[in-house]
Nucleic acid binder design. Structure first.
Lengths: 132, 132
DNA sequence: ATGCACCCTGTAGGAACTACAAGGTCAAGC
DNA sequence: GCTTGACCTTGTAGTTCCTACAGGGTGCAT
């Protein structure tokens, strides 16, 4: 499996795959006689995991931790659980922030009277506010 | 008004103010005899606008557009409204993604909390997806 | 005159990629 | 057998939005 195939199989770009290899997240694969990277099922599984975790908002460093945990099967689930919990809290914060933002943005848009910029409420809403 | 005062009046850092000047978002102010930046009400208003728009999640480039639009007072509000609506849609999408993530993390924690190592499903939870 | 808080410029770093540039490999088509 | 074009290689620099120095200058109080 060449890098392009691996990339499209996992929804990644070839550049990103090489980047993951460079930062030590994905093991360097064997090479063909023409010096092309040659991937197998192990790499596919691993990269799928990485992609999915990244999509779920885990940082590269957290993904590294999770991979280390999954590699060491003797370890308890507690560490994994802890990481997940930390992320859950973070995700909850992000959701709350975005909901507040959404409300404000929605209000701003609702006030738009579709006139000229001179009396655009959106611009007004962005204009100077007291700030501490 | 010196840079530090402007910064604290708008909830920004001095470095960020200089950065905004460097990328052409904020006009260079007059200088004192000692070469300090000297800001007036115009700068305060504009930086407040920038800060608020950034807090609402608009990118620097979008803020630039909004500033350009707001400078042309006779222009129709339509473009401004469109930008805000597009941004709102983006925020909605992010919220949806985060809600999905939240559910997944919750499930992982739930599974982990009453199980042994063998039962830990976090790795499986992040296992390969089909990618087309 | 001596601190000290603040200001100046310029550059490097950080997170996680992304986009070249300049060249090598390979299968297909003529 | 040779060309075309898609793909691969390495390396480096750019992206976004700042943040953090380093190494110096200014202004005010003691």
């Amino acid at each position: 499996m060449k890098i392009g195939e691996l990339a499209s199989a996992t929804g990644t770009r070839a550049e990103t795959v090489r980047y993951y290899e460079k930062i030590g997240l994905l093991a360097p694969p064997a090479r063909t006689s023409g010096n092309y990277r040659s991937y197998g099922g192990e790499h596919l599984a691993r990269l799928s995991f990485i992609r999915r975790a990244r999509d779920l908002g885990f940082t590269i460093e957290t993904v590294r931790e999770l991979l280390a945990l999954s590699d060491d099967r003797t370890r308890s689930c507690e560490a994994v659980d802890g990481i997940a919990r930390m992320h859950l809290a973070e995700v909850d914060r992000k959701i709350a922030d975005l909901m507040a933002l959404r409300g404000e943005l929605g209000r701003v848009i609702d006030t738009c009277s579709h006139g000229t910029v001179a009396d655009c409420k959106i611009i007004e809403a962005l204009a100077p506010h007291s700030h501490g």
